[in-house]
Design a protein around this nucleic acid. Sequence first.
RNA 1: UGGCCUAUGGUGUAAUUGGUAACACAGCUGAUUUUGGUUCAGUCGUUCAAGGUUCGAGUCCUUGUAGGCCAACCA
Length: 560
Amino acid sequence: MSEEKKSLNFIEHIIEEDLRNGFSTDHLRFRFPPEPNGYLHIGHASSICLNFGLGLKYDAPVNLRFDDTNPEKEEQEYVDAIKRDVEWLGFKWAHECYASDYFPDLYKWAVEFIKAGKAYVDSQSSDEMAKQKGTPTVPGTDSPFRNRSVDENLDLLERMKNGEFEAGSHVLRAKIDMASSNMLMRDPIMYRIIHKYHHRTANNWCIYPMYDWAHGESDYLEQVSHSFCTLEFAMHRELYDWFLDQVYDIEKVRPKQREFARRNLSHTIVSKRKLLKLVQEKFVTAWDDPRMPTISGLRRRGYTPDSIRNFADTIGIAKRDNLIDVSLLEYCVREDLNKKAARVMAVLDPVKVIITNYPEGQEEWLDAENNPEEEVMTYRKVPFSREIYIEREDFREEANRKFFRLKLGGEVRLKNAYIIKAESCVKDADGTITEIHCTYDVDSKSGSGTEASMRKVKGTLHWVSVAHAEQVEVRLYDRLFNDAAPDSHKEVDFLEFINPDSLNVVKGFVEPSLKNVKEGETFQFQRLGYFCVDKDTSENSIVFNKTVSLRDTWAKLESK
RNA sequence: UGGCCUAUGGUGUAAUUGGUAACACAGCUGAUUUUGGUUCAGUCGUUCAAGGUUCGAGUCCUUGUAGGCCAACCA
């Protein structure tokens, strides 16, 4: 382990301090608690890596707990997707838990609250209750139902549970302090009535616990030692602790909530509500559209679990607001894929090159390295012939010295093949180049060892033999939003920043070794970028997604 | 204008808890390269402000400034 030198983040400092103060490592336990109301995104990945990373570091169990307390938004589909994503990231949970499993415990506790005078049934409308709540600067006022008798409260709660009342007619509230400076402490709602099918408890329950009531107690029931959530829950901590105070047994582990800042990625959004909107209003094709910042979208885009975990480690965890540049995420995939992805040749914007002195009908199968990063080099065969495709942008009739590529009268190396020289080109009526006529240096074959093969020419181009090329569909992606922080503008809706050109589908040609690729396989198209095989691939059509381009210092030069 | 949280290069995160401000990304140079990729070497640039405590402050105190969060029968 090379972790020794790694400095600790503030969460680890908290744990270390607890350990120093006598908390036993054996009692360390964490949890990742998503609500199954949408797909996991890159922000969740950070939280997953934090909690499961802590589990690994301290050899402590980590539960996957579904916070399924609101049947109006939650679905089994999301539960399944979440499990798939966490697994894909490479983590194993100790227990698969559901807040809904604790409904009976919570109910029992609620009854005790009532008996102890710490909870009451309020029968006002939500509007009335909102009015009594006061404002941050003005204290609230008591509900007229605040002092109902224990018996009446008990009776009402039971009937709420049994479904005797309509949604909205009653709620159970904790009796705390209507004047608290913390709005959440002004008699928060514990239960509300919802008549809706729940994906796990079906129609067994007509009352459902609110987040604050369910979360801390769930942590406690699972004996989670450290419960980490995002900053917007900081104010909830007082209430979390209050609920815990009512049930806490000194013999047991008392969960501790601490908050960290949500990670924000530039040029995207990570609000589930807004992501849902992108899907529903068809700005993207689905939750796993490769442009989505969801884990399933990133997976389909060609991101690897390693790259995402690495990203999470690199950005770390802290308490201040942040906007992480997406280029760091891209760096992380490139770093990973550079080691793993086989190199192949593909031409996405083809123009035909005819090698006039290469015998017609002849073909050669040349050796090509699969990946120069490999410790033990492996090779494959690539066919070469008289007519090949190169990228349109790799040829110019005239160009200055900085253009290392093919130009009239200039030489260039064809990767793994020969040195060619452009002699002339043919254009159509519009002036578009349709053919480039070249001659090749017969003795310059790559790896042949001849003097000519060792010649240094400035540029090397990738290419595909016309006769052997496989046509494929390639989906090129650009960022989904043109703004660095599309949902940070109060005046402008995030949809205004949608990039209309975020998807560009092209037909390209790839070398024949790619004829039998399978979904999910990743390649480096040399000089272009990393690409992976999309799930839309079928027997008669191959579809690639562009994951990310290679670093391109030439493009930078050009744009200057 | 009540309460809570935060402030370190362009970005993100550290700093042995009061002891030489560093790591990564991005940028810029150059070398290597049959990918304008990779790799390597170098370079640019940082503690919100003002006071205070101290031999010594990014760290502690005070005040200010800026930003975020809190008034859903959401989580």
